[in-house]
Design a protein around this nucleic acid. Structure first.
Lengths: 214, 214
DNA sequence: TTCTGTGAAAAACTTCACAGCG
DNA sequence: CGCTGTGAAGTTTTTCACAGAA
């Protein structure tokens, strides 16, 4: 394992590799070359070899990578070779969808607590989980051994949700609310905002159109 | 307007600037400096000036940027100064959440058609929109003047959904399914996969933990 | 004076090209 | 022989630093 700082982009790509390798594994493929993997995820083959080299030597020269071994190695490198307990704050449309979506659990992220500040929602049961008052976050998160918080509140309540989560001792937050949040620097934050992707598509369409016209 | 190729990262950041500027605008702020904006979205001030310079000169030296003017200018540059018609394919948990979420519409993306291949879902009404058979995509998308497709199907059906959308003449696709899709190169594609962000947070937590231990 | 716009420098990231191992 | 692992080259993106306009 190298000690160089690992590019953020590499982490993003590793996540993509995991997805492709899991599909390959399900399809019964045993071996994949960097070129095959590259084609499957639209990047350069040496990019893949470089990305993997940050964490170790997982391939066999002249052969390629054993799908199952590589999958295990990447998951271990990313720290996703185990289950992470997650608390979800904000039970709106998006929050509900995430709670019902099996993908979180399938990927090793188990939502062990759902929280909201709306009295009408507190006590409701969604996907087998009771909705608790956000004020009980600190108390319950410790009890439930929560490590990651997911914020799906409206933008105005995101900072408060973040505060509760930090107080409750979570070490990472995935924020779906379209606002920046302030947290201590030892808390890892990721922002998810699909509107950005729609903007990006809109921009590219406009660009293509103008290329066609002139 | 410069003719250099605009970095993808710039487009992503412009989308973030839009969000912040809209908040500022609502709060009645008239002027913002590149430094203020930089602080609000966690980037370097000259990054912001560079990003904006790709599209023109929007600032006033010694003053900063007029919030409203800058907002208008960025929206125009991104091609989001108008309404885009969107077709959504795949009415599962995520699809439903997007249909009900007001944010799409608020940002200028109007879902004008919802499609699914499950006979049980066809005919259902969600957020005032009838669910149609995916097979009718081509016919209806043209009628409804759809320009962007959003795929929220399970991974296995994503490629078929993409094919339908391309046949229907959409020029851009936002794919929420965790698989790569093949489309003609004049169709802009963006992938949305929040699991990547959870992976990223998990990795960073693991990293912080190991830093703390050694 | 303040704060933008921008060349030039620095850093980060990607691709190349090939040595080296199975 | 084929494909990985990797230094070196190349490219892109970010940051610096300062000239110049309001």
């Amino acid at each position: 394992m190298k000690s160089t700082r690992i590019p953020r982009a590499t982490i993003q790509r590793l996540a993509a590799y995991v997805q492709i390798l899991e599909t390959l594994s399900q399809e019964g493929e045993k071996v994949i070359s960097s070129e095959g993997l590259a084609r499957a995820c639209g990047v350069n083959p040496s990019q893949i070899r470089k990305d993997l080299a940050y964490f170790g030597e997982f391939g066999v020269r002249g052969v390629g990578y054993y799908v199952q071994d590589l999958l295990t190695a990447i998951k271990q490198s990313l720290g996703i070779d185990r289950i992470w307990n997650v608390a979800l704050v904000g039970v709106g449309n998006l929050g509900r969808a995430l709670l019902r979506h099996k993908i979180l659990r399938k990927r090793g992220f188990m939502v062990v607590g759902a929280f909201d500040c709306d009295p009408f929602k507190i006590g409701e049961e969604i996907a087998g989980l009771e909705v608790y008052s956000s004020k009980r976050l600190q108390e319950l998160a410790q009890e439930l051994n929560v490590e990651i918080g997911v914020i799906t509140t409206p933008p105005k309540r995101a900072q408060r949700a973040a505060n509760y989560l930090v107080e409750a001792g979570v070490k990472g937050i995935v924020n779906f609310a379209p606002v920046r949040i302030d947290v201590p620097e030892n808390v890892a934050v990721e922002y998810v905002d699909f509107i950005h992707h729609l903007f990006s598509v809109a921009f590219n369409i406009s660009l293509n159109l103008s290329k066609g016209l002139f």
